[in-house]
């Protein structure tokens, strides 16, 4: 996505601009043979299912999918405007608003903190990177055990339960006000290793002489951070931003393991992905409707990608 637009290939999809070249045609069979494995897999498991899903999304089906009724393209607009989808879209946006800025802030903070010449800093770097080794299931179960209101850690530590009664009644995952934040925090934590590694690598690519020059000009520490560090981290931050946003929009495992889309009746953590595939999903036994929301998720993400590239991509400085 990010990588695509900055590539010259995309800017000249014009085949006619070059003269006919016999050698190019001679290379075609070899090229086809080399491309075939990738093209077949991508075609069969990305392009085909997407196209199929677009048409399946017009249908309403019985549970086995043996009887379907064509409801027309209206089904997309109806579903998009339905209370369930609108709610899921809002929850998804809120989830992204929680996880992306927090993830970026923690990632930058930790990376800058550990980017010092201190003895033993390597240990801290290893610690901060460690959550990259936790899969979504592992991370979510760890947080489930932290937050669960009856058999969880926080609710069984006396002073915590006394100071914050919400951890026990109804529980951070069961309170509509805190559920999404709790899932979001577990997600930020799980992504922390990744963001830390990327931003640290970005920091290391900033040449020291820039700081030296700035120091000679009398720039303070915070001044250097805002004028040098942050702008030159641009590409790394943009990458992290896009990955975190995409992950937020596709979040599923942490919701499945922590809240199952609840608590009711607000369905406070039912994101679009969870609405489509989750437990208790109203779509679960209607493949038509399931396809509709899946395709709508694609459209939303597509729109988001273009918005991101259009509004942010242009302003990022790529270092040399």
């Amino acid at each position: 996505m990010l990588v695509a637009t900055s590539d010259p290939a995309l800017r000249c999809i014009d085949m006619e601009s070059r003269a006919f070249d016999r050698r190019r045609w001679r290379q075609l069979p070899a090229a086809l043979a080399l491309l075939a494995p990738s093209a077949i897999v991508l075609g069969a498991f990305i392009v085909y299912p997407l196209v199929k899903a677009i048409f399946l999304g017009r249908q309403r089906c019985n549970s086995t999918g043996t009887r379907c009724v064509d409801a027309g393209w209206d089904q997309y607009s109806d579903t998009f405007r339905s209370t369930e989808f609108q709610h899921a879209l809002l929850v998804t946006a809120e989830f992204a608003l929680i996880t992306v800025p927090l993830g970026l802030a923690f990632g930058i903070g930790l990376a800058v903190l550990a980017h010092k010449h201190l003895s033993g800093v390597g240990v801290f770097r290893a610690i901060f990177s460690s959550t990259v080794a936790t899969s979504v299931a592992v991370a979510s179960l760890m947080w489930l055990f932290l937050l669960q209101p009856s058999v969880g850690v926080l609710s069984n530590v006396g002073w915590i339960a006394d100071a914050f009664p919400v951890v026990k009644q109804p529980g951070l995952l069961n309170d509509p006000g805190t559920a999404l934040w709790s899932v979001g925090l577990s997600s930020v934590w799980a992504n922390l290793g990744f963001t830390f590694i990327i931003i640290t690598a970005g920091l290391q690519s900033i040449p020291d002489d820039l700081y030296e020059a700035a120091a000679l000009d009398g720039a303070t520490g915070t001044g250097r951070f805002w004028r040098i560090t942050l702008p030159l981290l641009g590409p790394s931050l943009l990458f992290v931003l896009i990955v975190l946003t995409t992950r937020a929009f596709q979040a599923y495992g942490e919701i499945d393991l922590l809240t199952e889309g609840g608590p009711r009746p607000d369905d406070s953590t039912t994101t679009i992905t969870y609405l489509t595939y989750g437990r208790n999903s109203i779509m679960a036994t209607d493949q038509g409707l399931q396809a509709t929301t899946a395709v709508l998720l694609f459209v939303v993400l597509l729109g988001l990608s273009f918005l991101q590239l259009w509004s942010i991509g242009r302003r990022v400085h790529y270092g040399d």
């Binding site: 996505m1 990588v3 695509a4 590539d7 290939a9 995309l10 000249c12 999809i13 014009d14 085949m15 491309l35 990738s38 093209a39 991508l42 498991f45 990305i46 392009v47 085909y48 299912p49 997407l50 199929k52 899903a53 399946l56 995409t246 929009f249 596709q250 599923y252 992905t273 489509t276 595939y277 493949q287 399931q290 396809a291 899946a294 395709v295 998720l297 694609f298 993400l301 597509l302 990608s305």
Partner: peptide, 21 residues
């Protein structure tokens, strides 16, 4: 170039949109 663009375009499709099929 067209083929390459098509390859890259598949990156825009979230896996969730393909799982039903």
């Amino acid at each position: 170039n067209l083929a390459f663009a098509l390859f890259l375009a598949t990156l825009l499709v979230p896996i969730e949109a393909t799982l039903v099929v």
